[in-house]
């Protein structure tokens, strides 16, 4: 592997690392935000139904 090929691989690895890391972070963020929002909705729903029963 000559110097030029090593240089090219650095660019390839940088592009893949950036693309994969940002995509995974976006997926994790969207799933965490979804779970939090659904938990909050269920908690509000429970407290509303408890209030109605009283």
């Amino acid at each position: 592997m000559n110097r030029e090929q090593i240089g090219q691989w650095d660019f390839v690895i940088a592009a893949y690392a950036l693309g994969i890391a940002v995509t995974l972070a976006m997926i994790a963020w969207s799933l965490i935000a979804m779970q939090r929002a659904e938990k909050r909705r269920d908690a509000v729903k429970r407290s509303l139904s408890e209030g109605t029963e009283r």
């Binding site: 979804m34 929002a37 659904e38 909705r41």
Partner: peptide, 30 residues
């Protein structure tokens, strides 16, 4: 593969936004 990931994230975001809207509506009712 990336298109399926995009669609999955859109659905997760829709569920989050819908849950937020439903919680807000219930809080307003309370």
């Amino acid at each position: 593969g990336f298109s399926l990931l995009f669609a999955g994230v859109v659905l997760a975001r829709m569920r989050a936004l819908l849950a937020d809207a439903q919680a807000e509506a219930r809080l307003r009712r309370m």
